[in-house]
Design a protein around this nucleic acid. Structure first.
Lengths: 208, 208
DNA sequence: GTCTATATAGGGATAGAC
DNA sequence: GTCTATCCCTATATAGAC
């Protein structure tokens, strides 16, 4: 594997584990058993590494944020959307762990991150509108807008929230299932009675 | 005013405006026109300043997190709870802006912050249970638990979320009204039909 | 209590040899 | 492409005079 690729991969791992602000270029070089000078041959600086990792993240989550095609939508589409979003965030969770620190490193990155948030909301709105069409849920467009925004908030910050609540040890546990459950709980009250019952049963099985 | 008090006050202002990680002890001393040495006479280090500010925050938000007395609860209690919580967070928003950075400075602070989160959820649960009693909302205890958790997530991270969405300029705007609206939107679908209509009308007037 | 001067350490980054 | 050596800068923190 090319050195520049290995730098990105090692950085991602260290950033996710310890947080980007605590990892120095020396740490990264040490971990790889290369010299700091070598690292700087491949990347202008630490920000450049972070920016490249961000671009990978952007690429990955873009698949999840495709507005679904105009066809009959059901709960499956919602599950799929949530899973893809949560998995992308989990893989690049260092971005979210110190979000303000990350986005303040570059105007470009801040703008692009903002665009991702907007797309998260937009896609959620599209899915909910589809679900209204197929009578799976019932909601006004104002309710859908607020709901989609809340979905984005919970999806964006769930890992942070959960990490603070848990003890320090399992801070690197993957508890995305709980996150999906929480987001589903946002949608649940808008479901038809029978669908709500079904979701509750599914959620129970899913979490056990 | 005593110098130590002025240090805390100045720090709070600078931290809120620029973020605690970007503000050095020198910045604080400069802003006050005192020497760095003088600052260190009053506080062992920067962490000590942050910890003292956290204790003030903890004291302030504790008032909001009193579990309401056992009497008939209504939507007013919910509004009050949300307003007090949002105002406390806003006053000490630097804690939330770089949350991971802040809580990683001290085990004590992390633990106490976690306790506040738990109390946020617990108080919300108590309010919702009260509202079920008075038939204002209808929800199972499982729904209440998930709802209260989501209320805590949105309340905790709303300011961060909103700041990233907005342009850089108004990052210090106080848009708590929108936050309260979003949280209310979480509760809304559980309301009795007539109450929901009322809330929608109130929210409209409130946001205009 | 407050100041000036200074020590220390660490991270970011570059130069030049190989 | 990679290494060694080194420089700069900044933030933290302390010592000692006033």
């Amino acid at each position: 594997m090319k050195t520049s690729e290995r730098i990105l991969q090692t950085s991602l791992q260290l950033f996710n584990e310890h947080g980007a602000p605590r990892i120095t270029t020396n740490h990264i070089a040490d971990e790889m058993n290369i010299s700091p000078g070598n690292l700087y041959y491949h990347f202008r600086n630490k920000d450049e590494i972070i920016y490249q990792l961000f671009l990978s993240y952007e690429k990955k989550i873009s698949d999840a944020l495709q507005v679904p095609q105009s066809r009959d939508l059901n709960m499956e589409d919602m599950w799929l959307y949530l899973h893809l979003v949560f998995e992308s965030i989990w893989e690049y969770r260092f971005l979210y762990r110190d979000l303000e620190n990350i986005v303040s490193r570059s105007r470009k990155l801040r703008l692009r991150f903002k665009r991702i948030l907007e797309r998260k909301i937009k896609t959620a709105v599209a899915i909910f509108e589809g679900l209204v069409q197929t009578k799976v849920i019932q909601a006004t467009s104002e309710e859908i807008q607020a709901l989609a925004t809340n979905v984005a908030v919970v999806a964006t910050y769930w890992i942070n929230f959960h990490n603070i609540r848990g003890d320090d040890r399992n801070s690197n546990d993957n508890n995305l299932g709980l996150g999906v459950y929480q987001v589903m709980a946002l949608v649940s009250p808008f479901l038809r009675e029978d669908m709500r019952k079904l979701l509750q049963k599914l959620s129970h099985d899913y979490l056990d």
